[in-house]
Structure formats: structure tokens, C-alpha cells
Design a protein around this nucleic acid. Structure first.
Lengths: 335, 335
DNA sequence: ATTTAGAATGTAATCGATTACAATCAGGTT
DNA sequence: AACCTGATTGTAATCGATTACATTCTAAAT
């Protein structure tokens, strides 16, 4: 291990000078600088970042807690975070909870032990009071999810308006009997998308029949099963809004298995626009989230927090977008 | 920031004793220990890990370089790595190259600067000499990819035998005219899967016609286009082996767009068994890689390297598996 | 030649832990 | 009482950088 002392000795200067050559070259004479650089190269010196960090009490590392790294939605957000982080000289520590809520909280110790300068949470399923407290002590940004009534800086889309948009699209196609497969209603995300659905229906004076709202859990299987329930109805919906794409896939599959067609017999719209949605058959009409931008915005926000810059606001709502593909069609089955 | 000194003062002992209470409690008297613990709790003391790491010259962190984090194949391997890492008290630094070869190499500095104790490479596209040199100086494990003729510890499946297995499966179904859509042939992975294909054909005395081997680049679009080439032949293949699932999806789509059916008119087999292969229509027959196990094995291997344990061998070949779904069927179109 | 300001460099404290070594203590032996 | 041993605890060096402050140099001004 070659340290700054070795370089200093070799170049016949003090360690202070070596340090200055590295961090503030303008403060040292050209000639000395050359000498030092030469020694650095000859010894292949690499500063020990741990020592630097200890001295400066900063790590140039941020922690990202992800509920499930194998979910492309999150990995795309993560990529956005990484992109900005690396460009600003930060490294990204990954905390993958593997869909286990208990593990999410454990990662917080990384911050407490000063091994990261800040944290981005892509999940808010742990105790909200814990998160709130934590945000008081450390730079923290919420992305994708949010906590109701909290002032923690948050980046996300407006899930209510997104869901409303999806529903109104179906309505604009002439559908009146519309079913919804919701996400789990114990998380804000699930509730918000249902809320958007209800708002759209109300705005157009359409009734929301309880039998046409089924609670899923964001999985393919739940989408499949809930659609089966709809199809068992004496008077099934002509269109279905699934709160995410996986459930929409399951729903479409259920329709096909019943020897019916999407979109001819039933229109289906999803939410998220994941990778496979365009490859799926029929290509899925859905609401697209700006995943990469959510990531970059969250990271930029965190950087401001770390640098104690003034925040102009703490809720950043990004634009979602309706992606029209081929799983929805005008209602040709008027009551 | 409360440090060990504050605790020492409060408990009326030296910092050495506090340190011992934390790391070797058996070396300090019960009574003192209690006093110290009390102070620790009252002050909510958290040891500064940076300082500890600096002193011990270890970081309890490993770096994983991923070519593309949004690819579920890699994120599953990553999850395996994380799983073992966290259970052994290690943290995972993520280096996502975003499919940019140049960025892969940049992450190596993290190691040089002693910010990680070891590294797992899920890609070997940078200069092999660079990797070889690096492996001399730092604990390094290759996962998924490998370098020909290298002694670097490697965890992967046997791509040649996997490809052979896929091809022989088609042959066992009575197919004789079999096409292959390869991966890029400038990477070992691509070459190996082609090699396996050729071996299987040779073993069964089947000719490999040049027009029936098309080079793709692992993307959906390339699969689509190469299949189009096959279909334009006067005598197209009755079965096609695509070197990964994405290309297989594209290939199937091409067949459908030509108003033919998979598997009735053409059988298609893929490689990797990614998430959507089972949802795809028809559900894709493919070779499944034990992604999670690749990750766990790689991490365990790296741990051994870090602890300087003896390695019994340096090539770990895990078992792949043929997953029979519905995209392949017996040849009903004998020449 | 002397003074002086500003540039360049060096000295040593510091960040917060760990740990080799030294010092002290408690209790048992003689 | 004097001595010894092993258990406990304390002192201070150490890890490798950064940086406040002190010192020395340089060159221009007087």
C-alpha cells in the first residue's frame, strides 16, 4: 500500500504539499507540482478515500432502497439515480429488500453509521413515523411512493390523475360498464389509482358498481383471477382498467382462456408501461411513467438536500403519458 | 455527532474500554460493560464505520459491475449476490454501465481507492488484459461471462452444453432443418451458443447451412429481422433456436406477422428463461439459467477470495435446465 | 540594503475508531 | 507482609488523508 507519505518522501516534499497538488493544484508552484505528479505516477499512488472521507466526514455515496430490484420499473428509476449520481462523483449503494418489508428498515443503519451521505427510498412501506424521523436527521428523498400529508421531498407522478386519464380514455371510447382491478388498498399507490378511477367515473355520471371493483395485489395471477370474476358476471364489463401492467397481462390471458378476444370483446388498459407491454399481444395500451426522469430528479433533489441548498418546493410531480396501443377499442356493445 | 470519546467520558472509562465492550465484550468486566452500554444507549451512539474501516483497512463492501441493471437476468443475479452479501455483513455497491462498455472500466477505480474489498463482474466486455491484471491485485469473480483460457474464478452455466441441449431437443422432436439466430459473435457467449448448436447438429449428422445461421445482437428487433430472413428462404427451417429469449420473442412475432403459427408451422426455442417467457404466447420453451444461484455462488466465492481461503477450483459450472413450454412441437413437415 | 506582501511550503492537529503495550487491581500463596 | 498471576483497564500509536496555522521564500518597493 503506497500512501501519501511515500509520495511525499519520494518527491521530497511534505504530505501537505502532495495533498494540495491533488485537491488545489493552483496553490502550489508548477515545478513542485511536476515533481509530485511524477512521484505519484511512478508509485502508482491512489489516495485512500476512506481516510479522506473520515477527515471530511462525507462519503460521496448515497443509498437507494428498492423494494424489488428484479422489477424493471424500479431498476429503471435506479438507473436514472445512478446516472446523475455518477456524473456528480457519487457512488450508489444498493439496498434490495427483495420484497421483504422487514429488510427495508435494516438498511437505514448504513446512514446512521455515516456510510452514506443521503438516501433515496423507492418504497415507503416501513413505518411512516420511522421515515419521518429519519428525514429529520438525514437527507432523504422519496421517489415513486409518497407519504400522505408529509413534507418529505418527493418525486412521483400524480397517480390519481394518471388513473383518471386511463379511465377517461376508456370512457371516451364509449365504454360505460368499466371494471377496475385495483392494487392492494393498504398502500397509497393502490388507493390513489382507485381514487382516480372513481373520480373519472363520477365526472361522467357513470356508476361504480362494487362488483366491478376487485382488489388485486399487482401480480399477474391476481389480474388473471380478478378478470375471471368479471367474466363470471351475468353482465360483464366491456372494458377493464388494471392498476398495473402485470395484472393487465393476467387479465388479458383470462379473457383469451375464456375464448374471447382483447380488445374486440373486452378492452384492457394497464398502468406503468413496462418493458414487455409493447411486445405483449395485443400490445398493451397503458399509462407510461417517466421512470428515468423520476430517478434523475430524485437524485438532483437529494444532492440539493446534501448541499443544504434551498428547496423551492418539496413535491415534484412528473408527467405521465397515455400510450395508445392495441388493447383498447371503441365500445361496440352498447347496452 | 457523538463519538466514542463522548461515550467514554459519560461512562467514565477510556475509549479503549468502550471499543472492547463493542467488539470483545468477554474481555471486560460485567459491571463496566453495563455502565458503557448504558452510556451508549443514552447517547444513541453509533460507531463511525469509516474510522473503523480506515483502521482495519477493510470496507465490508463489494462492488458489482452490471452491464444493464434494467435487464432482469442481471438483476436476478444481483439479487443472489446481495442476498449472500448482506447475510455476511457486506454491502453492495452498484456499478451500472448502462450498456456502455466505456463506463464499465471506470468503476474499477472504486477498488483501487480501497472503497470495496472485492468485485463481481457480470460482464467481461472491457479489455481482457485489464481484467486479468486487476484480478492479480484484487479479489475478483466473474459471473455469467467468462474469459477464454483465464484462471480467474468464474461462475456460469456451460453455454455450449446448454445450446447443445436446446438444439438436441429440437432434433429429438424430429426437426432436421434447424435455423439459429446467434448472439453477437464477437463475445464468447455468442460464440459458445453457436458452438453448442453446431456440435449438436454434427452429432446427429445434420448439415449446418450458412443461410440458416444468422447473427443477431440479443435484441427483440434483431430476432424479428433474422426470422424474416429465414422465412424469405425458398425452403425455410421447421425449427429455430434463438440464442436468447428476447430474440425468440422477436422471431415468433415475425412468424405471426407472416400469418404463420408458432409452434404449428415453426418451432422456436429460446435461451435464458426470462420473466416473460412464461407469459408470452405461446409460452416459450427455453433453457433456464439458475440466476439466483449464480449470484449466491459468485458472492460466496468472492468471500473466500477476500478471506484468502483456499479455492478448490476456479470454474464453477452450474446446471441449466430445459423448460418445456409450448413453442416447440414435433416436426410434422418431413422433407 | 531593508522592508514587506504574498506565494509556497511545512508542521502538526484532527477525523473516530482499534489495539499493542503498559499499568493497575484483586485475590490467592507463601 | 511480600509476592505473584491473571484479569481489567488505560495510554498512546496508528490507519491515511486534510487543513489551520506557522514558517520560509521570492520578488517588488522603498
Amino acid at each position: 500500500m503506497v500512501s501519501i507519505k511515500d509520495v511525499a518522501k519520494k518527491a521530497n516534499v511534505s504530505t501537505a504539499t502532495v495533498s494540495r497538488v491533488i485537491s488545489r493544484p493552483e496553490a502550489v508552484k508548477e515545478e513542485t507540482s511536476m515533481k509530485v505528479m511524477k512521484a505519484i505516477h511512478e508509485l502508482k499512488y491512489q489516495p485512500n478515500v476512506l481516510a479522506r472521507q473520515l477527515r471530511k466526514l462525507e462519503t460521496k455515496t448515497i443509498l437507494v432502497i428498492v423494494p424489488d430490484i428484479t422489477n424493471t420499473f424500479f431498476s429503471k428509476v435506479l438507473r436514472g439515480i445512478e446516472y446523475v449520481a455518477v456524473s456528480k462523483g457519487y457512488k450508489v449503494l444498493l439496498g434490495d429488500a427483495g420484497n421483504d418489508v422487514a429488510r427495508e428498515g435494516e438498511f437505514l443503519n448504513v446512514l446512521r453509521q455515516k456510510q452514506a451521505d443521503g438516501i433515496v427510498l423507492l418504497t415507503a412501506r416501513m413505518e411512516t413515523s420511522l421515515i419521518e424521523e429519519f428525514a429529520l436527521d438525514y437527507p432523504l428523498v422519496l421517489a415513486c411512493e409518497y407519504i400522505e400529508g408529509s413534507t418529505i421531498p418527493t418525486v412521483s407522478i400524480d397517480n390519481i390523475s394518471g388513473a383518471r386519464k386511463a379511465t377517461e380514455y376508456l370512457i371516451s371510447l364509449g365504454h360505460k360498464k368499466i371494471g377496475m382491478i385495483t392494487g392492494p388498498l393498504n398502500v397509497v399507490l393502490g388507493r390513489d389509482r382507485l381514487k382516480g378511477f372513481s373520480q373519472a367515473m363520477a365526472r361522467h355520471d357513470l356508476p361504480v358498481e362494487p362488483s366491478l371493483v376487485q382488489e388485486g395485489n399487482f401480480t399477474y395471477d391476481s389480474g388473471y383471477n380478478m378478470m375471471l370474476k368479471f367474466l363470471a358476471l351475468s353482465n360483464p364489463p366491456t372494458a377493464v382498467f388494471a392498476a398495473n401492467d402485470e395484472m393487465a397481462f393476467g387479465a388479458v390471458k383470462a379473457v383469451k382462456d375464456r375464448r374471447m378476444r382483447v380488445p374486440e370483446d373486452i378492452s384492457v388498459i394497464g398502468f406503468d408501461d413496462i418493458e414487455f407491454s409493447s411486445i405483449f399481444e395485443p400490445p398493451l395500451t397503458t399509462i407510461s411513467q417517466p421512470t428515468f426522469e423520476i430517478g434523475t430528479t430524485a437524485m438532483e433533489l437529494l444532492l440539493k438536500l446534501i448541499n443544504e441548498d434551498e428547496l423551492t418546493r418539496n413535491q415534484y410531480i412528473l408527467e405521465d403519458k397515455l400510450i395508445e396501443r392495441q388493447s383498447c377499442v371503441s365500445n361496440n356493445n352498447p347496452l
